[in-house]
Design a protein around this nucleic acid. Structure first.
Lengths: 216, 216
DNA sequence: GATGCTATTGAGTGTGCGACCAATAAGCAA
DNA sequence: TTGCTTATTGGTCGCACACTCAATAGCATC
């Protein structure tokens, strides 16, 4: 009879409930920011009471950390999957940079800025950030190693090269919340330029390349 | 007789009061973060009532924006003064990178991360961030132009070069809240390497240089 | 259909925030 | 000294937050 208030309670298994809480928190973190991952906000999304979120995450800080990890892992997998049964390192790297230049990458940049800032105050989140940074380094390093092994790339220190590329991407992403329309070509191409230089590739080697088979 | 409560009220000129509010807010912003710039916090620092801060800044958001601007301007002037009566562009640039590698630079990096993130939600702050970014670009571009004019540097596009250097510095500074002890040499030197490359300088040209006369 | 476990609710605590406003007193000018 | 302007106070309101806990009800089991 009354308005839209939901009175019926739905009882789920702890695993299922926890999973949907984390999933929702990750989505909110990515789209609206980590400070929007609050007990009330997530509870409202799931049409449950805030106390329930507390039940699964006695400390809200843990939920925020988990939300970031899940979101960051998902985005990393989308940018550069760990499983690359087909396609060459050059193709995957080219795809990575193409995605990094797109609009969708702004959400990821924002998430990272968000997490890196918030980790100033929240130790739990700081650990997660460090963890995810290592994961990104590892992933990119691995692709570079494969490329070196195949003779596609040339570098003495694959890890240092990976980190350098990521530093440039971080630098470019730092402005995800401001206007960047009038950025010089040399700047927008910085990540590509860095990769080409550090990997001993000719100009255009990472742009004039067919896309690898899309992951399932 | 009682404890430390201060009952005597001190009346200052609006200009003086406003100045000390802004100064305090800038200090808090730099050392503890922009979210600590609250009416209550600044009032406590100055031993006045929160209402007084509201009196000078009817919208708290304006105070935060002002705090950031003042802090960022101060730090920019410390890193690379606008007035450089003595010393060469090479010397000033070398000094700039030396300071950028020091501990004290972490506070600045943190402030920028902080502001760039918060500007996602606060339009007032976003404008200030854009403003300060332009100021940094301009300052660095100017030094580069002087160096080009003197024949010390060589670049086709001083502004693009300036922005590229700043992108690298932003990328390196992004990790100001995490541990960066085991960073490869090639990474820690990235800003220098970028500058040397883009300015047509030999390796070491920006490190093996006497310091310019310190500004007053 | 009754029972027990526990996922979920409802209600409440305490904190910190910005914003608002009438009352007060500091210090200048008459 | 008196009076006036206004910088400053003190108190209040509403909101959002995390956290706690006894009471409730969904659901599997018997």
């Amino acid at each position: 009879m009354s308005s839209s208030v939901q009175r019926k309670r739905v009882r789920k298994t702890p695993e299922a409930r926890r999973a949907e809480i984390v999933e929702t928190a990750a989505r909110v973190a990515l789209t609206e920011g980590l400070e929007c991952v609050t007990l009330r906000r997530i509870a409202e999304e799931l049409a449950v009471r805030p106390g329930l979120i507390s039940h699964y995450f006695p400390s809200a800080e843990d939920l925020v950390g988990e939300a970031f990890s899940v979101a960051a892992t998902g985005e990393l997998d989308a940018l550069l999957p760990a499983d690359r049964p087909h396609g060459t390192p050059t193709q995957w790297l080219a795809r990575y940079f193409a995605l990094s230049a797109g609009e969708a990458y702004d959400d990821i940049s924002r998430l990272w800025i968000n997490a890196r800032h918030l980790s100033r105050y929240r130790p739990v989140l700081r650990d997660r950030v460090t963890e995810q940074e290592l994961a990104s380094d590892d992933r990119l390093e691995q692709v570079i190693r494969e490329g070196v092994a195949r003779g596609e790339f040339r570098t003495d220190d694959p890890r240092a090269t990976a980190i350098q590329i990521l530093v440039v991407l971080d630098g470019l992403g730092a402005h995800a919340n401001s206007d960047r329309t009038d950025r010089p070509e040399a700047v927008t191409r910085m990540a590509l330029t860095t990769a080409e230089r550090e990997l001993g590739l000719p100009h255009g080697a990472l742009t004039d390349v067919p896309a690898p088979p899309e992951p399932a």
